[in-house]
Design a protein around this nucleic acid. Structure first.
Lengths: 338, 338
DNA sequence: CTGTTAGCGCCTTCAT
DNA sequence: ATGAAGGCGCTAACAG
């Protein structure tokens, strides 16, 4: 790979002159500039951004750490991030933690070595270790999707508790009384808050809460499948089910089908999801939809502000609106169930 | 951020000694090593990978260039790539081209500046410009999902023509005679090859080919929607439809629903997709499924080999198996249609 | 076992 | 308008 020196040699100038041409410095004679540009072209010279980064102590790379890019919700988030990044010539390094705090910290270590300028983080837990690490290295960070105890970091997310409340209220309004709650990892804020919303909706309606109908697991299809089976084994008469996310909902769907439970005739199933996937003409899932793309976009923009030293001193929390989309997976509670 | 020099000073040794400790060099006294490690810990020192890269002329970063991470197929590919990369301490920079060759080249330029070690590319066209650029810079590349004219590059993909052939054969076996073909961008190999397979299946069955039933567009929902409408406007009696990918299928689904066409009673709809999304108990879409995750995995492994200077001299082409999954979106052709 | 020198490619500072 | 020197953080090669 040709270096700036090769260009300089070929053009018969000093490296500084080449550097000036590259950076559009004013004080360059048109003739020299032309000669340098000629040399650049013939050598196919490409500036070394690593060397540049070393000088400037700025890599123009940011990290996107999330649990699983395979989840359409996070995919949309990632796309929002990438669109902003591209517009600013930032490169995005992406990392899947699979909700493992250990993986998250391992990644962070690697990313700090790579001198990332900033970090977008979907925290795998509410432990603040990652945030403290980033702060100790003065690397700006914006937390996405989830709440963290730490009060000093920007955060873009939706109101999980309220969303859960509305979803369960929807089921209650349809006449459902025995409603299962299949949630994610308890240390993840969205999972615990959705349970809180579930509880509040039941209490609000004066309905009893059966703790055995509340199950925590993983945000995965397998886990959703297992949780649904577990709940059915405990009480086959449930008529409603609230899955804390789309993967859990798919898993539950499987379990219900295998149990010969028709949706929504025998059982209603509601969940959280990305808005894009629910926005069809006749959505199947009744879901609380979140603007995933916007979450990524907004978070990336906020990170950019921090990188530029802009924005208010204190941490900001942005709550993006959610919307209940009613699909075919929820309907009136059946009068009786075996 | 503390540097290696700060550590050296604090430990009262030279920077080289610190470097040796960091790289687990043998010839270090236990006592010195301990002192250095102590200094590293108290300073919270993190080695600068950029400086290291500059020395080694190796960044340990690879690029993943694809059309749209939002497509579950590519998401699964990305996940496969990332899993391999993580296992080898490589970082993945990801880029969406939206099928634009211009974007692709712009990205490539940026990535070359960042000194990526290798590139995984879902080419936006069969133009070889990108490949020639990479080759001129000696950056190894593996092409994913699509065929390119260039015969000197490793490629991991599925057999689109054969898959299309089987899908259309499936429709024909069900009695369908008037089958629409909604494809992607004509310069993308998967799009053109799926049309070829479509043609071959019809010819094989001795059925006439109506060129007006073959439409090219984008691999997007909107485009699928429009193409379906266009085809319906031309001939409302079609009973079968082959969408070249999942997004097109979704768009077509919308259009058919709006036209009050029930699936599969009035019209059968088949497409290509990722295997994970079709592998449910009762899949809705009849689809030719591709092992997306495996494609990413395999491609990343092949790239790794190239990075290590391994593998055969000449280019390899890996064809991964595809599988027809029959869902509820295809059924016997109706006897008559309005 | 440890230190010195030099250089990866680039750019800021100071000369000319 | 152009060039020379020096250093960003790191390590290979060579001392000692």
């Amino acid at each position: 790979m040709a270096t700036i020196n090769d260009v300089a040699k070929l053009a018969g100038v000093s490296t500084m002159t080449v550097s000036r041409v590259l950076n559009n410095s004013k004080h360059i004679s048109a003739e020299t500039r032309a000669r340098v540009e000629q040399a650049i072209a013939t050598l196919g010279y490409v500036p070394n951004a690593l060397a540049r980064s070393l000088r400037f102590k700025q890599s123009n790379m940011i990290a996107l750490i999330l649990s699983d890019i395979t989840n359409p919700f996070f995919t949309a988030v990632a796309r929002g991030v990438e669109d902003v990044a591209r517009a600013h010539d930032l490169s995005v390094i992406f990392c899947n933690t699979d909700e493992s705090e250990v993986e998250e910290l391992k990644y962070l270590q690697l990313l700090l070595q790579r001198q990332i300028d900033g970090c977008l983080l979907v925290p795998s837990s509410n432990a603040q270790e990652s945030l403290m690490l980033l702060r100790s290295k003065m690397v700006p960070c914006v937390v996405l999707d989830r709440r963290v105890a730490d009060g000093q970091v920007d955060c873009v997310r939706c109101d999980s508790e309220d969303g859960a409340f509305q979803l369960v209220q929807h089921l209650i309004a349809l006449g459902h009384r025995r409603i299962a709650m299949l949630s994610g990892p308890p240390h993840v804020s969205t999972a615990s808050e959705r349970v809180l919303g579930y509880r509040r909706a039941l209490e609000d309606a004066g309905l009893p809460i059966d703790e055995n109908l509340i199950v925590f697991g993983q945000y995965s299809e397998e886990s959703g499948y297992q949780m649904a089976q577990q709940v059915l084994a405990y009480d086959s008469r449930i008529t409603g089910c609230f899955a804390a996310n789309n993967f859990i909902a798919f898993g539950a769907l499987q379990a219900f089908r295998e149990a010969k439970l028709r949706i929504p005739d025998h059982i209603s199933l509601v969940s959280f999801d990305d808005i894009a996937y629910a926005n069809t003409l006749e959505p199947f899932f009744t879901a609380m939809t979140q603007p995933a793309y916007q979450i990524g976009l907004r978070a990336a923009e906020m990170l950019l502000e921090r990188l530029n030293g802009e924005g208010p001193e204190q941490a900001r929390e942005v709550l993006l609106p959610i919307e209940l989309v009613i699909g075919q997976s929820s309907g009136p509670a059946p009068l009786s169930r075996v």
